[in-house]
Structures are given as C-alpha cells and as structure tokens.
Nucleic acid binder design. Structure first.
Length: 379
RNA sequence: GCGGAUAUGGUGAAGGGGUUAACACGGCGGAUUGUGGUUCCGUUAUGCUAGGGUUCGAAUCCCUAUAUCCGCC
C-alpha cells in the first residue's frame, strides 16, 4: 500500500492531517528524527515511541555502503533489521553526494554521480536507478527520488540546468521503482528563485509522486529568507491531497514557519547532533548545558517538559555527563531535544485545529528568540 | 653539612639574549538544519620562583635567597 494523506483541518495555509502508511498512521505536521545508519544515534525504538516519534528517516547511501542493501533485505527489510515497526522514510543519497563530497572531487554527469566512499575512498557511482533499487530492497515505507542538491552559492544558470537534470533523474528513478509497498516522493529544487521553483514543482507533480518534498533549503549558508521563499514558491503547485516534506529542517523557528506555509513533514539531525554537543532546546532558546552556570543547577532542563530526561534528571547531572564524555548524557539530551520538536508539532496541530496558529507563532517566538524577536516577521 | 640539577599559565611543557612567550590538555564561550561530527571555531600567562646585577635589550647571562629533586658524608 502506498501512503495516503488525509487532510483534516486547515488554518490559512497550515494543514492538519493524517498520513496512512503500512506501518501505522500518524498525524501531521510531524517531525522525523534521523537515523542515518539504521539507528537514531543513542536511542532505542522503544524510547522513540515513548517520545511519540511517529516516523524516522534512514539513509540509502550509508546502508548501501554498510552493511549493504542485500544484508538488510535478507534480514527481512529495514524494519525487521533494526527492530522498528513504525514508518520509515529513506533519503536517496542525493544529499550525501553534496555533503560528503563537499570541497572534494566529484563528477556529476547525466548518468549519475561519481564520488568517493567516506569509508575507504573507493570510487562509487550512484545513479537514480541504483538509488531507487537500493531503497526497494531496504523496503522503507517512503523512498526519495535521487536529486542533485546544489549548494547555496549555486548560480541561477547552474540551478536551471540542475533542476532539469533532477527532473530527468526523478523520471528514471520512478521508472525502475518496483516495490509495491513503498511510496516514492519527488523533490522540488530551484534555490530561492520563483520561476525555477515553480517550474520544478509543476514538472515534478506531473510525474505523479506519492508525496513531494522541497529540497536544497538546509545545505550550507542558505538564509532563512531563501528557505521561506523556496517554500512559498513551491507549495502552490503541490496538490493538496499529497504530503509535503521540507527536507533537512529542524530548527524550531523554521518548523513553525514551514508549517505556517503548508509543510507537513520535517526531518533534521539537529536535535541529536546538538545533544551530542551538549545543547538543549528550551522555550527560551537553545542552551549549552556545558555552561558553567549549570554546574550547580539541580533543576530539569525545563520543568514543564514531559520527556523522560526532564522528569528524572537535573542540568547539573547532564552537564557532568556531557563534560565527562559519557554517552548517557548525549542520550538524555537526544531524548529531550527530539521530544521538544515532536511536542512542538503536537502544539502546532492543536493550533491549526483551533485556528490560532499565528498567535501560537507570536507567543513561541517571543519566548524563544527573546531580545532577537522581530515583530516584523510576516507569514 | 658538602656537591650537583631544576624552577615558565589550572596542568604537561617549548623557547638557551632581539618585535605582541610555541604547542597540547584543561577552563570559559560560540557554531551546528535530507549526520564523513567524542566535530569545528574563538578565547584563555601584561608575564617566565623572589630580589639584585650585566646589557640598547633578559624567560634566556651573572649573583643571592627560597623551593624541589639527586648524589656524598
């Protein structure tokens, strides 16, 4: 069965809906924690469930190299392999071509991309067909098209050629996609340019994917303004009965801005990466638990938070774990940070249903940004 | 008691007369958006045990004191 999006309620452009999948239904907007190597770093599937995480993202490129898609397939697919029975989305590897080969030699040609393995330097050639075939074998619920993810610095001319190629790649991938239980999402590119996003969106939608994502907004150095433009210029051309996924976004402010603009799904490494580096989201902004001021702070990160970490542990203790390089510290912060974003989407859903999303945003941003809050931010 | 060695930041230390005292760890702060991340970036000794001297110039040379260490009575 392919995923099916059910639109339940709207508040201006923001949508509240349900996505039906083979591994359960979940409400949108939703945040997807990232489990690149078939694990959300430091967390067990049970813990993810406890924090109401409904769908996770894993990665084609990494699983292709290790352990290999055939091993995962023999294990009975990704769900069985990693003991996770909720929905899983796999990224196509398109982003890795960009991020792993950043500043390194890579050849993007019509056929695919030639680049080097981050494990042993071996030459690799990834094509749209191969990406889809790997994802078919991984047996994720949602596969992503293999796209080119150009850097923020890409010129208009470059982007124009790039989105044409990405469209051809999308078609090639779709043509070989054979897993009937797996959905396939198309990816809209085009940088911050209205005409390119419009063109990319219209042409991608023509191919009739099961869902659509907006890519190229969280690579390196894109401004928030460009991100919001990319969304605004793409959304009008995506059919309302299909899920919309903003790739790579997980800053709380961006999630709110994305939801207000009509996004249903987000994924980001931020909550887990920040955790490993000692940072925690709070309603008053991001904090660095390593700061000396928390040395004797025997209160939870947020007393109002319902996560396992905040119910049982103090900032002083977590600070001790992080400064001592104990992985339990990264675990506790990962639990809190992911729960923070999941809860944020829960609250956004309520705000959509209660038709007060703009009030919610204003209140959230005032607390979160504090002095930096700009009353001129517009939706 | 005699002889010798060594004294540089929170720590380990480089520098053996010439502009703002290397580097590492630690400390303090920051970054992080489809995870090559126990990562990356800033900052951290107005001073080289103390006092005196030589010199245009001393952490660097000389003297004295003090401390520590190693030998020998």
């Amino acid at each position: 069965m392919k995923v099916k999006y059910e639109l339940v309620d709207e508040c201006d452009k923001a949508r509240y809906g349900i996505l039906h999948t083979n591994h359960g239904d979940f409400e949108t907007p939703m945040f997807m924690p990232v489990g690149t190597q078939a694990t959300v770093k430091t967390l067990s599937p049970e813990e993810l469930k406890d924090m109401k995480s409904a769908i996770i993202l894993s990665n084609t490129y990494h699983l292709w190299l290790r352990p290999g898609e055939d091993i995962v397939n023999k294990a009975g697919g990704l769900h069985k392999f990693m003991n996770y029975d909720g929905p899983i989305l796999t990224d196509s590897g398109g982003f890795q071509v960009f991020s792993l080969a950043k500043n390194k030699k890579k050849d993007i040609v019509e056929e695919g991309v030639l680049f080097k393995s981050h494990l042993d330097g071996k030459k690799l050639f990834l094509t749209p067909e191969l990406s889809i075939q790997i994802q078919n074998k991984l047996d994720s619920d949602i596969a992503m098209s293999f796209d080119e993810c150009p850097p923020a610095s890409a010129s208009y001319e470059y982007l124009k050629n790039s989105i044409e190629r990405t469209l051809r790649w999308a078609k090639r991938g779709k043509d070989v996609h054979s897993n009937k239980n797996q959905s396939l999402f198309g990816i809209i590119q085009g940088g911050p340019h209205e005409d390119l996003r419009k063109y990319s969106a219209i042409e991608t939608v023509k191919m009739d994917f099961d869902g659509y994502s907006i890519g190229g907004v969280a690579n390196d150095g894109e401004s928030k303004d460009d991100m919001y433009k990319a969304i605004d210029y793409s959304i009008p051309y995506i059919p309302k009965d299909k899920p919309r996924y903003l790739m790579g976004v997980g800053d709380p402010v961006d999630i709110i801005e994305g939801v207000i603009r009509g996004i249903d799904m987000f994924d980001c490494v931020l909550p887990t990466r920040l955790a490993r580096h000692g940072n925690a989201f709070t309603h008053n902004g991001k904090i660095n638990i390593k700061n000396a001021k928390y040395k004797e702070d025997f209160t939870p990160i947020e007393s109002t938070c319902d996560c396992y970490t905040c119910k049982h542990y103090t900032k002083a203790y977590i600070r001790h774990l992080i400064t001592s390089d104990e992985t339990f510290g990264a675990r506790l912060l990962s639990i809190h940070n992911i729960r923070f974003l999941i809860k944020l989407t829960e609250e956004l859903r309520v705000a959509i249903k209660e038709k007060n999303i703009y009030e919610y945003r204003e209140k959230f941003l005032q607390n979160y940004l504090g002095d930096k809050y700009d009353k001129n931010i517009k939706g």
